[in-house]
Design a binder for these strands. Structure first.
Lengths: 196, 196, 196, 196
DNA sequence: AATGAATGAGGGTTCATTCAT
DNA sequence: GATGAATGAACCCTCATTCAT
């Protein structure tokens, strides 16, 4: 099993396409292989099994996004701008690829328990990133000291995730990235009138 | 297929138990039948098929919750108190039944597309409830006029849902209902310092 | 998994036929089901899996033979007559059913390790029967006291088994049962001249 | 396909090791190639296919034994001594190599039909050797004229084979070669008391 | 001669649903 | 109404073999 052959990404991209177009349960290995232009068995030269392929898919797409964010966020000073960049980038990633959005928001959620635990594992750094941003903000007195950081992280991720999911369910017919600004404002200032 | 025999709820409760204890994929119709103390075929006298049983389960438990909320919310005046009651009641419902929480937050999410669309349908009144609360708040100048109501609803639901899911994943080992207040505050006032 | 329905033996007999006619490796479950006139899944109502079906087949046919022999041998006094009856009955059993002979002597031997260990387990009582016969013969001073009973049992079984196998390989074209007498004599008296 | 390169025996010995240590079904060509220190494809430069490799293995090991016996047996006069030498040598060959014994007595038996027919072919000279010994013995009036030579050969081979197999099954924990003498005696004199 | 990446055919088993009793 | 024995469609993965290098 050798990761990173030329066919490694070829197969992952084929999986994204097949799952997005056929749905998780109809995404047979043979269908993915055909889409990738390789034999069924070739998939098993690059992935231990079907689950491993799907986990790798998520790792490759989200994991790489998270790593990129870790780097980019270092350049920014204020907590508010950091949070905005994260939300905007999250939206941009999924707005860029219709298929990837369908796969991460809808199809991969119906994976079995083991697979979903692995996916949760990949998301851990995302939450750690949120923790760090909020802690820094608190130290810089930008974020209220009363805030429960873990709860706030869940609020942020839950809001972002639910927003993307709704956008996918509504056939991606409005501008997702444009929602970064208002969502960011609501998260920072709340929904209350007179936020002066 | 006649709903509301004496065995109707018996079967739904058996389904909750079996899914919570065995997981979605190991919850065969025969296992649910055994837990309910009826024959496999009997289930098909009350439900059209397995999907219908699961949708009915969600409808019965969440739908009834939403109807109850619609009534109770009428008694309350302020938008802030309405939102608090909704969040708190949502948390209370799931904190009350360990099994139901596992089923709605983890197991039912891995259902197939068709089933999940039906579940989304059941949740629609929940979102309409949120829309109404926010619109009223806006009219009463409690909620900022700049707010995108649909986006704010997604933020609220996403935050609540993610909070419950994390509580379930962490084996329900802390007090979920106690999180209603801080979450409510963050949603209303945001995370910003000096929320005066 | 309920043994002994009316279809239990129906399936076992179908397995014997299909294996004998197609060979061990070409004996798919679906082929056996078709021959038995049942659905594929029905086989799994009576047998845990394919291995269990094959073990049951051997148990049913050889196990029942061994039990019958245990009873019949009690009626006979002399060790020589007991041994003769055993050999003759063994030959008769397999001469009676062309298919069963092919299955036990050729096809079932290419089973996997686990299956073959189970088959060896079924044969244990056969060896215990031989041990008992020889021990009795030794006590009655019919069998030489110098004999290693375990080795002698292996000689007897090996001779009988090899004789049947050769008869099957040669397409069962000569009278197997007729070989009981000369084989019995050789086992008792050896091949030496002047066995007076 | 050229037999007898330097790697020919290298591959065969690797096959014996791999089959003995992993079992017949887990003995993939790739595993044998790795053990032999060659590439998968190289095996096909020396053997037509996997079956051919296994047949060659048996031929190389048993065929060479039989040829050696043909020579050595010419030096001996009496039928009894010839038979003893054959049994003893057979036992010695397999007692010498734990791996070879496992492969010939257990693993190779679960080969497919075609392969086992080829193996039977290799054993034919062994049976011819037995026929010749018995015929000579009969002419020299050492062996009873009533004996069916083919049946007697099967008795001898079956006894020897079953004895080795039992020794392997019992983890080779007793002295196999020591059984040559008592087995030889039983074959010659039978199990009857008073063999004077 | 030697390599090893790529190929692709093939089968045991589960479980939602039916229907004769 | 209630039963539960019977149905049968659907799919991941292995591994012997090839062939371009």
């Amino acid at each position: 099993m050798k990761k990173r052959g030329p066919k490694y990404n070829q197969i992952i991209d084929a999986a994204v396409t097949v799952i997005a177009e056929n749905g998780y349960h109809a995404a047979q290995v043979s269908k993915i292989a055909k889409q990738a232009g390789v034999a069924d068995g070739t998939i098993y030269l690059y992935f231990a099994n079907k689950d491993d392929l799907l986990i790798s898919l998520f790792q490759e797409k989200m994991g790489e996004f998270i790593k990129k964010m870790e780097v980019e966020l270092k350049e920014i000073k204020s907590m508010e701008q950091k949070l905005f960049l994260l939300i905007q980038s999250h939206f941009q990633l999924l707005a860029k690829s219709e298929h990837l959005a369908i796969v991460t928001q809808l199809e991969l959620r119906q994976a079995n328990k083991r697979l979903r635990e692995s996916i949760a594992e990949v998301l851990k750094p995302y939450f750690l990133l949120l923790h760090a941003i909020l802690r820094e903000g608190m130290e810089a007195h930008t974020v209220s000291a009363d805030i429960d950081i873990r709860l706030a992280s869940q609020m942020i991720f839950g809001s972002v995730d639910e927003t993307v999911t709704n956008w996918v369910i509504n056939n991606q017919k409005y501008d997702l990235v444009a929602l970064a600004k208002p969502l960011h404002e609501m998260l920072i200032y709340g929904m209350k009138m007179n936020k002066s």
